[in-house]
Amino acid sequence: MSARLLLATANQKKLVELQRILDNALGTGGIELVGLGDFPGYPDVPETGLTFGENALIKAREGASRTGLPTVADDSGLAVDALNGMPGVFSARWSGRHGDDDANLDLVLAQIGDVGDEHRGGAFVCAAALVLPGGREHLVEGKQRGEILRARRGTGGFGYDPIFLGEGQTRTNAELSPAEKDAISHRGKAFRELSKVIAKELPR
């Protein structure tokens, strides 16, 4: 019988990405991944934490409490050096509307429009949490350093991917294939690390 694991996100693009990373890390046998869409009426959980880790734990605790399932949640975003690490935990709602990728991206570009190329560094950061119904908690973090471009490149991925050029890369995250992105991304790093914990906590 498969162990069920809840991925606590309502973002369909992120859900697909997380499922892909975990399937590759864990193999497809023995763990059934379910999303918030499998639980009609599941409420929005306010992300009131001041760090990625705090927000990931808030969402994972809520999922485990409401569903009784081991729950994985992440909080991730873009930290721009010239903006003192912002948008940070406000990445998804930087423009004022949650999840408006184009508006968020345009605002960041406008805010650092006059910043020289040598100061356009930044990082994607992901904190990923696993909370078990019995109360055990695990938290890991992944990071991808790079630079913020002046214009979009590529149509893949989501969020700030079209303006982020990772260190050592010639293509933005939005120009990479899903497998290429997973291999170097903040989320790929965090969830590969978390998958080691999941494998121990949810033996198959």
Rank of each mutant, 00 (worst) to 15 (best):
K200L: 14
L5T: 01
G96Y: 00
D161I: 04
Q111L: 14
R136M: 13
I148T: 01
F158E: 07
M1K: 05
G159A: 06
P178H: 13
V34M: 03
G116Y: 00
A190R: 00
P178F: 12
F191A: 05
G49N: 12
E201T: 08
N84C: 12
G63C: 03
E193W: 06
C126I: 06
P203S: 14
E167D: 10
V131R: 03
G168H: 02
A79M: 14
D74N: 05
T67A: 07
S76V: 12
R171T: 10
F39Q: 01
A127D: 14
N24E: 15
Y160P: 01
V115D: 03
E54F: 07
Q111S: 14
G142N: 02
G29V: 11
L130W: 06
L107Y: 11
N84Q: 15
G159L: 04
G68P: 04
K200P: 02
G37Q: 02
Q12K: 08
Y42Q: 02
R187E: 13
R66P: 10
G146E: 01
R192C: 07
T9W: 02
G77D: 11
E17L: 09
A64L: 10
V34Q: 00
D81F: 00
E17S: 09
L149H: 05
Q169Y: 03
T48G: 08
L18W: 04
R61V: 08
V16H: 09
G37Y: 01
D74I: 03
Q144D: 05
R204S: 08
P203D: 09
G30H: 00
A73S: 13
L36H: 00
R171P: 09
S177T: 15
E141W: 04
D81W: 00
T28E: 14
F191T: 10
E118A: 07
Q19S: 15
G122D: 00
L33Y: 11
E54D: 09
D100V: 03
I184T: 11
L69N: 02
A103D: 10
T51V: 11
Q12H: 06
S185W: 02
R153S: 12
L130V: 05
F191Q: 10
Q144G: 09
K13D: 13
F39I: 01
G122K: 03
Q111Y: 09
V115A: 01
R152T: 03
A64R: 07
T170F: 04
A129D: 04
Q169K: 08
A151C: 14
